[in-house]
Every structure is written in structure tokens, then in C-alpha cells.
Design a protein around this nucleic acid. Sequence first.
DNA 1: TTGAAAGCGATACCAG
DNA 2: CTGGTATCGCTTTCAA
Lengths: 365, 365
Amino acid sequence: MKPKATLFDIADALGISIGTVHRALHNHHGVSVETKARVLEVAQKLGYRPNLAARYLSSRRKLRISVNTLKGTTSFWDEVRAGIEEEAKSLGMESVEIEFRTYPGLDEGEEEAFAQAVQAGVDGIITYPSRPEKLKAWMRKAASSRIPVVCVATDAPETGRLAVVSVDTLVSGSLAADLMGRFLKGQGKVLVTLSDMAILEHAEKFHAFQNTLHDYYPGIQLLDPIQDHDVESEAYAKCLSLFRATPELSGVYVTTEASLPVLNAARDAGVLGNLIVITTDLFPALVPEIHSGAVAATIYQRPRTQGLTAFRVLYEYLSEGKSSSSQLTLAPHLVMRGNLEFFLQRESLELREQKAHRPVAAEAV
Amino acid sequence: MKPKATLFDIADALGISIGTVHRALHNHHGVSVETKARVLEVAQKLGYRPNLAARYLSSRRKLRISVNTLKGTTSFWDEVRAGIEEEAKSLGMESVEIEFRTYPGLDEGEEEAFAQAVQAGVDGIITYPSRPEKLKAWMRKAASSRIPVVCVATDAPETGRLAVVSVDTLVSGSLAADLMGRFLKGQGKVLVTLSDMAILEHAEKFHAFQNTLHDYYPGIQLLDPIQDHDVESEAYAKCLSLFRATPELSGVYVTTEASLPVLNAARDAGVLGNLIVITTDLFPALVPEIHSGAVAATIYQRPRTQGLTAFRVLYEYLSEGKSSSSQLTLAPHLVMRGNLEFFLQRESLELREQKAHRPVAAEAV
DNA sequence: TTGAAAGCGATACCAG
DNA sequence: CTGGTATCGCTTTCAA
């Protein structure tokens, strides 16, 4: 195995100059198809891998990358952005420049933000494609302009995106079911709430939950899911009437961030005490609910790690051209009273140094 | 804020040469204390940060790092090593060279391996200090020779080690307790098995388990822990007699890898069916036990991630001199039937591409 | 279409 | 003790 293989080596082997080799390797204009083919071939044979240090050293151009995400009602998206920023500045501020385009709601500004990023000619985009159909045209356009796009949290299939980073929805759903089954000792009625069955991510969680329950805990009866369409009042109202109509309900699995209205409905219906509630994600308002035991467990989707990973993939592609696995799935973390503190300590980086009685570290959770 | 600040900038500001600046910055001999002080001061003022790309480019010396770990009976240490190797070669093979010094048992060869590494003059060491007292002298020696040492899995206090990477034992113990409490609905007798209360890591897990149980599930009675001293037959024998003497036992938390003897004892005593068993780590022989439901949940200590993280910390220190947080703690993953498949798919990297019906990705779990 | 050459910032020499 | 300089591999101009 050759220890190295530089531009010079391949230029030397062909008796041409490194300038030409460089142009050939980068699809720059002004290289005859013939030389290009030969360069490519030799590069292949020699196992040429660009030396990143040298590349970075000689071209100090900044990579511009656009981060298009939701404002969000909980801290989820703040954490995603924090993860991205953290990873970006760990590379040293001089090599990359991040432009945040944050839009207010599921349907407000998403398309515009993406269009802007493309037109601004950024080098890459990290985005949350909440409405993949709407974004599809733009994403294709980005793909044809060779602007790599990495999706976070949810996928946008058939759009030519470089990669998607998300938690494994099947894992989340199955884990929730397994816990629920154990908590209830295999007995009782259980409800799932979600945003909309039309959203792939939610449907997947529901089905995974359903299947695991069916396979391992046949004694548990699963009700039809409640769809809240991301509207808090709808979640509250629907749950309240269901809780009143079904007082014998023993468990609820909230697949979205909208757990508070569900909890409130249960509280108002007076059934919270005999309900095992499993939620999704972690945000300040949920903390007391976990502490009090109202929420038995929550499935934390590790927003910071998602952001960090998305950035890494994009950066590696941009700087080295290597595209690793295109579907990066994370294992969600399970948070209960017992380990809640651990996660809370990591939430805000600023606090880390101060409350140093038990120093906790740099892993982005 | 200054966009850069190079060696030249600071040399220029002082009217000296970059060679001198370089030497001053690196504590090399042959610089007058006076110049050195001035260089340091200006460097400080200018916010000088070495350019890693340049450094790496100009000195293509390989870093040699020694990885001293146990052979191990389960796959834990194989995974740790795999994580290290993976991360190392993701940097490109040309920059780092890893020497594995793997010793057979807890007390066999650990000291020698460390001594060898130090004497071989490696640039850094990643080690599992199973017997910190014995290693202490050598670790101090390493510290005084400026060889950074990173501990994995368990800490070696007061040894001058650069950092420790481990799971949070308190989190593991508390989480296990919380699950146990929920699974048992707050009732019953529970047992903990561990290797030795003298080992900090195990004592911590036990106490965390105890405290959480006490705080949230006062109805559960915790028996005295069983210490198996890492001997399988001892674990089996002690458990068997306890299970026979206490047939009403309802839960067991195994804090070490030695869960099989415990399971076998329970099976042989005929109590497995009415026992909630929570184990630690994940290895092939445990898989069927989880599938069958004999093990309700296992707390996975993410060996691959531990290895990977240890390597990163060491490498960053070696290449940039930056020492981040010295205690890097990871959140353990909870594995149950519902998400077992997910983790199994990641175990062997080679399988990943082949069973590609649902491609899974590069996060080291 | 190609070659030649000037850097990028740090390291590690060799003179003085 | 200190200054000067070749070098690392690549990008990017400027000529040819």
C-alpha cells in the first residue's frame, strides 16, 4: 500500500503538471477529455486521497452553509441549532460561516427560506423539510446546482438530498411500547397521540408501537390514535373528551412534542393519577412533570446530536467530497426521574463550568 | 476581533523571526527568558491560535498512541478498540499509529503493558486502569514525562491523567432503579449484584440505585448486594443459594457484565419467571435472553462511543494542545426487546452494507 | 489546453 | 541564543 499519493505523484506518472491534474480532478474547464480520463484513472490506481490540511491551508475560502429550521415552541430546534453551531466553531471560526434562516411555523416561510438560501449561493444547506412536497422542487433545483442538502429530524425522499439525520422512529415507537407493556404488566387500554397519520414519521412511530404491543403484550388494547394536527387546543379537547369517555384508560404515548395539553387534559379529567404517560423530547416545562412522576418516561430525540451530526456530514462532503451513509439514524435516549439531572446539566452549555461539583462533559447528547 | 494572528504576525510585532517565536511558544531550549516572555505576552494579546492545517501539513510525523485494554470475556473491549480504530482511521491513516497492548485478565499484564508503552516512548496512552493503585506509579511517571493518558470506562484519580471517558455510573444506577420501581409497581424485594464494593464504579452504581429506590419507591426492599469478584462460578453459587432462600425475590439488577451466571442461577432455581432482571451491557449471549423477555432491559454502556471519544480527546490534546473537560461522561443507552435490533445492526460494521433493507448509519453507539 | 510559480502557516533544520 | 529558509500538498493566478 502506498503511504501517500499526492497531486505531484500522479502528475509525475503522466508527465504533466500538477495544475492540470488539479483541474482534471475538480471538473474545471480547460482540460481535454482525454487527459482528464487519464488523470482520473491514475488517481484511482494510486488511491489518491486529497490532503485536507494542505487544501484547507491553501484556500482559505469560507464555506457558507445555510441552516433552515423551525422556530419551534419547545427547545428542540434551539438545541439542533446549538449543536450545529458548536460543531462549526470547533472547526475554528475561520473555515465556515453559518447563516441561520429560521421560519416561524410549519407552513410559514419554509419555502422562501430555502429559495433564499439557494439564490444566495450557499455551499450547503441543512434543513428540516416539514413539507417535503412543497420543498421538493427547490431541493431538486439545489441538487442540480450541486448544492448538497442534509435533512434533519425527518426525511425528504426523492429530492436528491445528500443525507438525512434523524432518530430511528421505529426504535422510538417500539421502545415506548415495550416500556408501556412492562409498566402496565401487559394489561389495560392504551392511547397514542400524534400530529397526523399522513406524516410518515408519526405513522411509523405509531405502527412500531402497535406492532411491538401486539407481539409482546397481546393483553393490551390499543385505541385509535388521536391526531392533533399540531394544534394544542385540538390535542387538549380531543384528549379531554376521550379521557372522560374512557376513564379506565391506563396509558398514553405522546409521539410529538405536544405533551403538555395531553397532560393537562388528563389532569383536568382527573385521570392523571392512574395513567402511565410516555412522552417525546425534553423541554423545561416537561421537567416538573417528570419529577412529579406524571410522566413516567420521555423519549429524548437528542436534538443537539442531530444538529452536530448533520453539520459533520455536510462539512465532510464539502471539504473532502466523501459522502458517507446517507441515512444517519440515532438511538433516542430514555429519560426518567433517575437520569433527568444528567440531561438537564447538558442543556445549557454555559452552566456547565459553573455548577462544577460534578463536572460533566462535552458529548453532545 | 482579529481574523487571524499567525506566527508571522507576532514575530513582526516584536521585530524578531518566526523561528524564535515558534521556539518560545513550544518551550524549546535556546530562547532567552526575556524574549520568551514577550512572545507569550504578544501571542496572548493577539489571540494567537495555531493553524492546525499548517501544523499538520508541515510536520508529518505520526503520533504513536498505545491502547492498553483488557481482552475481556464479552465483546465490550472489542467494541472499545473498534471505536478507537475507527476514529483513528477516519483521520487518515497517515497521521496516527495505534499500538494495541491487550492483556488477558484483570491482574495479568496490566502494569507491564503500561510500562512498555511508556518505555517505548509513545505520544499518548489510552488505558483501562482496572487496578488504579498498581498503575498509579507508572501513570505519574507518564505524567512527568508529559505523556498524556486517557482512561476509559473507569477513572484513576490523582494520577495526573488527562481525562477519563465513562458512562455516568450514577445515571446507570438511578435509571435501573427507576425502571425497576416502575416495573414492580413499587413493591417487592430487589437484589443487586456487583463485582466488588471496593471498586468505585460499582459502589457508585449501587448507591445510586439504592438512593433512587429509597426516594421514589419506598415500598421496595433492597437486599445486601452480592459481590462476585469477577468470578463466574462465585456469582452463580451465591445467587443460586440466595434465590433458593428468597423465592419471593422480584427483581435483580446486575451492574457488571456477569449477567449470564445470574440468569442461569435464577433459571436453575426456578425463579426466573417471576423475576424482573435488568442487566448491563450487550453481547451476543445476552441477545436471546432479551428476546425471550428473561432480561427486561439492559443498560448499554456504549463501548464504541467510549473508545471513539477517548481517542478524540487524546488526539485533540496531542495535535492542538487543547484539553477539554477532563471528565467526559456518556449517557448509557437503554436496550429492550423493542430496540434491540437497532443496536445489533450496529455491532458489526461489516454487516451494515449487506443487510441494507433499512440502512443504518455511522453513529458509533 | 497546459505549465510554472506564488503563496497558505507551521516545523525543523542550518548558519551565524 | 537567534535569523533565515526549505518544505509539506494543494489552490489559484498568470503566462504560454
